[in-house]
Design a protein around this nucleic acid. Structure first.
Lengths: 143, 143
DNA sequence: GCTCAATCATTGATACGTCAACTAATATAA
DNA sequence: TTATATTAGTTGACGTATCAATGATTGAGC
């Protein structure tokens, strides 16, 4: 196992560990999970959207989207209705309550992110985002 | 929601998405999950170690460690035995088969990592690892 | 020596992601 | 128009992480 790759390995391991340790703290800080907030945020930006289109935006599995939205509906955060013109589609929108509460969530998220990146200069943030984007592309190209 | 934070938000979202998309591909490429390979790798480096010490090294929850080791034991990859001098401790070691098979896993992991970082210069890798390490520290300091 | 605290391991409940199988509705093409 | 394919959504099975509760063993203080 060559020497240079030990460092590369650390990169991959760090990426994994960062995720594992971020997820619970994100939720305890903001009061909502990252994925759910992302869903709400997409809904915040539109009037109404089909589940399918929403799923494409957040890019997680259909099944997960269905379950999240079902629970968000139970909590009164979102509203779902079938498209009368094509009953296959379910349209989703933020409820009034959802639209109110997301503001608070987003503020907490901002604070959380500020903490995570607090010692990063603007330039560093740019470089980091660029690198992560490249990694993401590299991963897509597998198989 | 201020403008600069949109970019910061992308960083956090990328980190999350990278993990989500890496995990399944890592496993399909190498034939084993990242966490399990990490466990095996720690075992590879020692003769025998207590579950507790192993857990501290890989830094995931006790419960997860127990379950992984139980399954790895069922597959004949590791051997577990109680410490006769202190029955609270369970010692774990790689079986012969485990010791053989990890070599292949590690090779595949190396290939995987090479793909993920293929367009990164040595300098970039260094910078990236440094940044990720800083992020990790920042996350630890929460709450 | 006996009780209480500490430590390791296990198990249960929960959360969230994947894939695969299925249902329902619509589009296509013979 | 009727059979077939496609598309959206749901559900089930599974993997793996977390936290909380429990069991078992050992250590410490009285």
């Amino acid at each position: 196992m060559s020497n240079s790759n030990i460092e590369d390995e650390k990169i991959i391991n760090r990426l994994y560990e960062i995720h594992r340790r971020t997820a619970p703290k994100f939720e305890s800080c903001t009061g909502i999970s990252q994925t759910r907030l992302e869903l709400l945020h997409e809904l915040y930006e539109v009037e109404e959207i089909s589940q399918r289109a929403l799923q494409k935006k957040v890019n997680i599995d259909h099944a997960a989207v269905t379950r999240h939205l079902k629970q968000l509906e139970e909590k009164g955060m979102v509203i779902r209705r079938k498209n009368p013109d094509d009953q296959r589609f379910t349209y989703v929108s933020l409820s009034e309550e959802g639209r109110t509460r997301i503001i608070h969530y987003r503020e907490e998220k901002e604070r959380f992110i500020s903490g995570v990146l607090n010692d990063f200069s603007a330039e560093e943030r740019k470089v980091l985002l660029d690198m992560l984007t490249r990694i993401q592309h590299n991963i897509e190209r597998f198989e």
